[in-house]
Amino acid sequence: VFERFAFRPVRYAPTTTGLLTAFGVSIVVQNLFMLLISPKPQSVSVLNGLNQMWFFGPFAVSSLQVMELIVSGLTILALVLFLNRSTLGLAIRAASRDFATVRLMGIKANRVIATAFAISGALAGIAAVFILARRGSVSPDLGFGLVLKAFVACVIGGFGSLPGAAVGGMLLGFIEVGLLVALPQEYAGFRDALTYAIIVALLVYRPEGLLGQRIELGDKEI
């Protein structure tokens, strides 16, 4: 629905228009939930099996952490296989590079873009299961901070690189947890500021991201 009524009309507009449209849709949806449901957080029940402790000798591990690791790995593997082995996945990759040429090859552009939106929604749904299992509640603005961190992770890894997005997300998580452990309690409020300061320093050194391709002015993208 979002793709059909919000993003399709601005498909050929500049990239910044698409970004502004995404933020606009997000704000509209948040306010609809506030008006029609509630502006306050609503409690949700945790799925059975996600709130247990598993013991491996002297070590205790949360079942939620184990399931997060397994499901994340399988999801990334499935996405990589889809993008590299299936016809529709190859069409999505080609459309991200040269949309006009993909249409000239006889591929239905609307189908390709709608599939990309469906996949992104499914991935967000999978992530939401584990996020809600940790939080135990849902609120209209729950996704804003998470989307911002996902955007930062893509910037760290390099836009257009699926491994880069995964590496960027893991690195962002390591930095946040490391600062949470290393900082004294009275300085815990500076965690986000220090995290983004480290990221800015990293991007000054590698502005294209960790796994992004550096393209000099006048070079042809491969």
Rank of each mutant, 00 (worst) to 15 (best):
A94I: 03
R93T: 09
N31S: 10
A165M: 03
V46P: 01
L32G: 06
I76K: 00
P58N: 08
R206F: 00
V204T: 09
P207L: 04
N110G: 15
P163G: 07
T21G: 05
R8F: 12
S86R: 12
G218S: 07
E221F: 10
P9H: 06
I92C: 07
G189L: 04
M170T: 15
I175D: 03
S139G: 09
G121M: 09
T87M: 11
L123T: 03
L132W: 10
F130I: 12
I76C: 06
L35P: 01
Q65A: 14
M53F: 13
V155Y: 04
S161H: 00
T101C: 05
V155K: 07
A182Q: 06
Y196D: 02
M67E: 02
P58A: 10
P184F: 06
L211H: 08
F99P: 09
R11K: 09
Q42C: 04
A153D: 02
G125V: 02
R206D: 05
S120D: 01
V204W: 13
S45P: 02
L217K: 13
S63V: 06
V44E: 06
A22M: 07
I156Q: 03
E221S: 12
V129I: 15
A118R: 01
N51Y: 05
L32Y: 12
K108P: 08
R214W: 09
L162F: 14
Q185S: 12
V204H: 04
S72A: 15
D192G: 07
N84M: 09
F82V: 01
Q65N: 13
G169Q: 04
A197H: 03
A197W: 01
I156K: 05
L35S: 13
G189F: 01
L50H: 04
L171E: 01
L50G: 03
I156D: 06
F55S: 14
Q213S: 13
F151M: 05
T75A: 15
E186P: 07
R8L: 11
L179Y: 05
G157K: 06
P14N: 08
S86M: 13
P14H: 09
G145I: 06
L74R: 07
A128C: 10
L32F: 15
A100K: 13
I222V: 14
A193M: 12
L142V: 12
I126E: 06
P14Q: 10
S96Q: 10
L211K: 07
L123H: 02
F190D: 03
W54S: 11
L90D: 03
L172T: 07
S45E: 15
S120G: 14
A60P: 06
T17V: 15
K149R: 11
G136M: 05
E176S: 07
